[in-house]
Design a protein around this nucleic acid. Structure first.
Length: 865
DNA sequence: CTTGGCTGCCC
DNA sequence: ATTCTGC
DNA sequence: GCAGAATGGGCAGCCAAG
C-alpha cells in the first residue's frame, strides 16, 4: 500500500465500477458525449501536471479493460473503431496526459520501434507470475493453456475463485505505463526477478477483467483486432470530433477536419435507416472523417512515432499536423512493400502498357539509410564554427545515430540506419555508416580509380577486389561518368547483402551471423554490400510523390556505384535491373536472379498514369501530370476543361495527396518536366509510381520462385506430431510437426513445423481425425514415444501422431538446421536440414507414407541450391 | 566459465 | 516471412 | 482488398543455472 504524506483519497470501488460500467462506449460517435455522459467523480486522482498541486482525474485501467472487453465481443471493424474512438475521447476530455499512454497500451508498444525499448517479458516469466499470484497447480495451468490458448485468459481463469482480501487502490493507465517503462529499463543480473516482482505486484492489484488484458499487455499481444490502422483511425476521429473541452484549440471555421457538436446534431455516423445514410449533412461529415483518417495514416506512415504525433495533435490539432510532423531525416518512414505475384505472366499483365523495370530481389536485410551532412564552417566563416556542438544537437532529432567525420575535413555526416520494421540498426553496420560521407561527395578520394568499381554479380573472378571491380565495371560503364555532387541529406532504400572476398553475394544465413552490437568497424567479420533501389528524400526535399522513374534516375546519377578504397568500408551498388517489358527478356532476367542467389525479382511501375475505369471512353493524350502539383494536373489539355474534369475524377487517395502536399514545398522543375501521364476524358483511375509508405502496392510486384506453381521445391511430408494452437487456433492442432520418411530405417525424421496454408476446414478435419487420445494421436508423456521418430533437438510436441498421411509442403529454400536432424550426415555431420517459410499446399491422397520424401530427396534439393 | 532457456528481431 | 478469414 | 491474427526457421544477445 502506498504511504507518505500524499496518500490518495480513499476510492469507492463500487462507485468507480458503476461509473465505468455506465459509460456508453458503444454509442454512435456523433451522439456520444464524453463530457456529459461520463462521471469522473469516483475516478482516482493524481496531481495535475502543471505543478499547481491540484488533483485531477486519472484514467482508471478498468476503463480500458472495459473497452477491450467490449471490443472483444465483436468482429465488426465499425464497432471496434467506435469503441476505440469513444474510449480515446473520454481520456482526452478528462485526463489528457493519459492519452499517449493509452494509445501505446492499445498498440502493444511503449515506444517507437527505433527507440530500442524492450519489455523483455515473455510467456515464461508470465507463467511464473500467474502461478505465484493465483496459486494454481502446474497441471491446471497447462490445461488452461490448452483450452484457451491465451496468456490473459489463462490468468483470468486461474484467478477465478481466488479470494481477494485486500481492497486495492485502483490501477491507472498512467501508473501502468510508467511501470512498463520501468520494467523495460531493468537490465543485468537479477533483472528477471526484479521484472517478475513488478509484474506480480500489478497482477495482484488488478481487479476483474483487468488481469486478462494486463497479462496480454505484458506479453505485447493484446489480441483485440486493432493494431495499427484501427488506432490511427480512432485517433483521427477523436481529434475530428469537437467535444467542447478546455484543451481543444478552437478554429472550426477554417478546418478541413473538425466536426462540432452543432454540425452533428441529430445525425448518426452509422445510421440504420437507409434514408439517414444518404442525408447530405451526414455525408459531408463522413467525408471529413475520411479525410482525417487519411491524413492520420499518411502522417503516421511518414513519421511513425506516437510520442510525436499525439502531443502534436493535442497542441495543433489535425489541421496543423502534417506541417508539425513531417517526413524527416532521422525518423524512419514505413517502407513501401510489394504485392505477391504468382507468375511472370501475371506481373506482365498487371502493368499492361505501362512502363516498368524489374530488379533483383537480393536475399539480405532491408535497410533505410538516413544521412545528413553538417559542415564545420557555416557560410562566411572559416574554421570550425564555435557553435558546432549546438548545431549538431539541433541538426538531429535526438542523440541517436552516428557522426562520421568526412575525410576532406569539411564536416561530419550523421547517419542512422533502420530495418524493415523500423528498428535502429546503426550500430550493427559501422561499415555502412562510414560509406556515407564518401557516397555523399564529402570524401577526398572520389577521383580515385578504385572508386569506380562495382559489385560483381555472382561471376567468379580471380584476383582481389580491385580486379573484380574493374571486371564488373564493364557492366555499367556509366558508373565512371558521374562526378560526385555534394549531397546535403538523403533517405535511401536498399538491401544489405553479405558478400565474399570477390564481392559475390552470400546466403542470408551468413548475414544473420553478423553481430548486432558492433563496437568497432575492425571487428566486422561478415562483409556486406549495399544494393540501393530507391531514394525517398534528397537535399531537403521529400521525393515520395515523384515518379519512380525520376527517383531512380536521381539515385543512379547522384550516387554511382563504387567500391571504397578502404576494404573495411561497405561497397555500394544499385540493384541489378532490367528495363525490358518483353516477357522473354524478363524470364531470362528472372533466371539470372536465381543464378545470383536472389529470392526473385521486384517489378516496379516507372511513371504516374491515368487509366480508364471500365465502360468509359478513353482519350489518351500525353501531358504533364504530377500528383502534388495542381498546376501540372490542371495544365495544358486538349479542350481546356479537361483539367478541371480530371481533378473532379481524382480518387480519394490522390485528392488527399493534393491537399497534403501543398505544404511539402515547391515542385522541382526537372521533375515536372519529366512527369508523364495520360489524360483521360471520362472516369479515371490513378495508377501512380509514387513511394507509398506502409503499403503493399500494385505498383511494386514481387515474384519469387516458390510463389510460382510448379517452380519452387516442394516436399511430401508426413505429419507426426502437433501442439495445441493459440488464439484463434486454440481449438485445433497448430503447429504440426512434419517429417521425412527414411526407407533405410523405416523411421521418420522431423524436418519442420507447419502453421500456414491450412484452411479452417482443414484444421477441423485434422483435429477430428487425430483426436486426442485416439488410436492415431497420443501424449508422448504418458505413453512411450515410438522409437522410429527422430525429433532432433526439438522439444517434445504435445502429441504425436501415427504416420498415416502425406502432405505436400512448399518452402522457399532448404537451410542447415541447428535443431532438426533430417538428412543428418548427408550434407553435414553436425547439422540436419530444414525448410524456410514452410506452408501446407494439399494432402497427397495418392501417396502412402512409404512414398513420402526421403532424406536423400531433401539433400538433393539442398545441393542444387 | 560454460551451457541452455528466453526474448526479440531478421527473413 | 506466408497464409487465411471476416468485413 | 484491407486489416489482423497465428506462427515458420534461425540468428545474436542476455541472463540464470549448473
Amino acid at each position: 500500500m502506498p504511504s507518505g504524506p500524499s496518500l490518495p483519497p480513499k476510492i469507492d470501488l463500487a462507485a468507480l465500477d458503476s461509473a465505468i460500467e455506465s459509460i456508453p462506449l458503444h454509442e454512435d460517435i456523433f451522439k456520444f458525449d464524453p463530457v456529459s455522459q461520463v462521471d469522473t467523480s469516483p475516478w482516482p486522482r493524481a496531481p495535475a501536471g502543471d505543478g499547481s498541486g491540484s488533483l485531477v482525474p486519472s484514467t482508471p485501467y478498468s476503463l480500458m479493460a472495459r473497452a477491450f472487453t467490449l471490443i472483444s465481443s465483436t468482429r465488426s471493424r465499425l464497432a471496434i473503431t467506435t469503441l476505440l474512438t469513444n474510449l480515446l475521447r473520454v481520456i482526452r476530455a478528462h485526463d489528457a496526459s493519459s492519452l499517449l499512454p493509452a494509445v501505446y497500451l492499445v498498440s502493444n508498444h511503449i515506444a517507437p520501434a527505433y527507440d530500442g525499448v524492450e519489455l523483455g517479458l515473455g510467456g515464461s516469466i508470465l507463467n511464473k507470475a500467474i502461478l505465484d499470484v493465483t496459486g494454481v497447480s502446474r497441471a491446471r495451468m497447462k490445461q488452461l493453456w490448452n483450452s484457451t490458448g491465451d496468456s490473459g485468459d489463462v490468468a483470468f481463469e486461474a484467478r477465478k475463485g481466488c479470494k481477494t482480501l485486500v481492497q486495492h487502490v485502483p490501477l491507472t493507465v498512467s501508473k501502468l505505463y510508467k511501470t512498463l517503462q520501468l520494467i523495460a529499463g531493468i537490465k543485468g543480473q537479477g533483472s528477471a526477478n526484479a521484472k517478475l516482482a513488478h509484474v506480480t505486484k500489478l497482477l495482484v492489484a488488478s481487479r476483474g477483467e483487468e488481469i486478462r488484458f494486463l497479462v496480454r499487455t505484458f506479453v505485447s499481444h493484446l489480441r483485440i483486432q486493432a493494431v495499427k490502422t484501427t488506432i490511427a483511425t480512432a485517433l483521427a476521429m477523436t481529434f475530428s470530433l469537437v467535444d467542447g473541452t478546455a484543451t481543444e484549440s478552437v478554429e472550426f471555421s477554417k478546418s478541413h477536419y473538425l466536426i462540432t457538436r452543432e454540425d452533428r446534431k441529430g445525425l448518426l455516423a452509422t445510421p440504420t435507416k437507409q434514408s439517414e445514410r444518404h442525408s447530405p449533412a451526414r455525408l459531408t461529415l463522413m467525408a471529413r472523417l475520411r479525410l482525417s483518417e487519411r491524413l492520420m495514416r499518411q502522417v503516421r506512415a511518414r513519421h511513425p512515432n506516437f510520442s510525436v504525433i499525439v502531443p502534436a495533435l493535442q497542441e495543433v490539432g489535425l489541421d496543423g499536423l502534417s506541417t508539425r510532423v513531417p517526413l524527416s531525416v532521422g525518423t524512419p518512414l514505413s517502407p513501401m512493400l510489394g504485392s505477391i505475384t504468382r507468375s511472370l505472366q501475371d506481373m506482365r499483365a498487371k502493368f499492361g502498357e505501362r512502363a516498368f523495370v524489374s530488379e533483383f530481389k537480393y536475399d539480405g536485410q532491408r535497410v533505410q539509410i538516413h544521412a545528413l551532412f553538417l559542415p564545420y564552417a557555416v557560410s562566411g566563416k572559416d574554421g570550425a564554427a564555435p557553435d558546432w556542438a549546438k548545431r549538431r544537437r539541433e541538426a538531429v532529432p535526438a542523440e541517436k545515430g552516428r557522426w562520421v567525420k568526412c575525410c576532406n575535413g569539411d564536416g561530419e555526416v550523421w547517419v542512422r540506419l533502420f530495418s524493415r520494421h523500423l528498428e535502429d540498426m546503426t550500430v550493427k553496420y559501422p561499415d555502412i555508416c562510414d560509406l556515407m560521407p564518401l557516397l555523399m561527395g564529402h570524401g577526398e578520394a572520389t577521383a580515385d580509380a578504385s572508386f569506380l568499381g562495382a559489385l560483381p554479380t555472382a561471376r567468379p573472378s580471380e584476383g582481389d577486389a580491385a580486379t573484380t571491380a574493374s571486371t564488373s565495371l564493364l557492366e555499367n560503364p556509366a558508373a565512371s561518368a558521374a562526378p560526385p555532387v555534394k549531397t546535403r541529406s538523403l533517405i535511401m532504400d536498399a538491401e544489405v547483402v553479405a558478400i565474399g572476398l570477390q564481392g559475390e553475394p552470400l546466403p542470408f544465413q551468413t548475414l544473420a551471423n553478423r553481430s548486432r552490437k558492433e563496437v568497432n568497424i575492425k571487428d566486422v567479420k561478415v562483409k556486406v554490400g549495399v544494393f540501393a533501389f530507391d531514394l525517398m528524400y534528397l537535399d531537403g526535399k521529400p521525393l515520395l510523390k515523384t515518379s519512380f522513374r525520376q527517383r531512380r534516375k536521381a539515385l543512379q546519377t547522384r550516387f554511382p556505384q563504387f567500391n571504397p578504397p578502404d576494404p573495411l568500408i561497405a561497397r555500394f551498388a544499385h540493384v541489378r535491373s532490367c528495363e525490358s517489358t518483353d516477357l522473354d527478356e524478363i524470364s531470362a532476367f528472372f533466371e539470372a536472379a536465381q543464378a545470383s542467389k536472389c529470392e526473385g525479382i521486384m517489378a516496379k511501375s516507372l511513371d504516374h498514369h491515368w487509366e480508364a475505369v471500365e465502360g468509359s471512353e478513353v482519350r489518351c493524350t500525353t501531358r504533364a501530370f504530377h500528383t502534388g502539383n495542381m498546376k501540372a494536373a490542371t495544365g495544358e489539355t486538349e479542350d481546356g476543361k479537361a483539367g478541371e474534369h480530371l481533378l473532379e475524377k481524382l480518387d480519394d487517395e490522390v485528392a488527399d495527396e493534393l491537399v497534403l502536399n501543398t505544404e511539402e514545398g515547391e515542385e522541382d522543375e526537372e521533375r515536372e518536366q519529366d512527369a508523364i501521364g495520360k489524360g483521360v476524358n471520362g472516369r479515371g483511375k490513378a495508377l501512380l509510381s509514387t513511394y507509398e509508405p506502409d503499403r503493399r502496392c500494385e505498383s511494386w510486384l514481387k515474384v519469387k520462385r516458390d510463389y510460382v506453381e510448379g517452380m519452387g521445391d516442394s516436399l511430401d511430408l508426413v505429419p507426426i506430431g502437433a501442439w495445441h494452437g493459440m488464439g484463434r487456433k486454440a481449438a485445433w492442432w497448430s503447429p504440426i510437426l512434419l517429417a521425412l520418411y527414411d526407407p533405410d530405417t523405416g523411421g521418420y525424421q522431423a524436418v519442420c513445423k507447419c502453421i500456414s496454408g491450412f484452411t479452417d476446414n482443414e484444421y477441423k478435419r485434422i483435429f477430428a481425425k487425430f483426436a486426442e487420445g485416439s488410436e492415431l494421436c497420443y501424449d508422448p508423456r504418458k505413453r512411450e514415444p515410438m522409437d522410429e521418430y527422430e525429433l532432433g533437438g526439438m522439444s517434445l510436441p504435445d502429441v504425436l501422431f501415427r504416420p498415416c498421411e502425406v502432405w505436400e509442403v512448399r518452402g522457399a529454400d532448404i537451410t542447415l538446421s541447428p535443431v532438426y536432424h533430417a538428412a543428418l550426415g548427408l550434407v553435414s555431420e553436425e547439422r540436419g536440414l530444414s525448410m524456410r517459410f514452410p506452408r501446407f499446399i494439399r494432402r497427397r491422397e495418392d501417396k502412402s507414407v512409404e512414398n513420402a520424401s526421403t532424406p536423400e530427396d531433401l539433400a538433393v534439393i539442398y545441393r542444387a541450391q
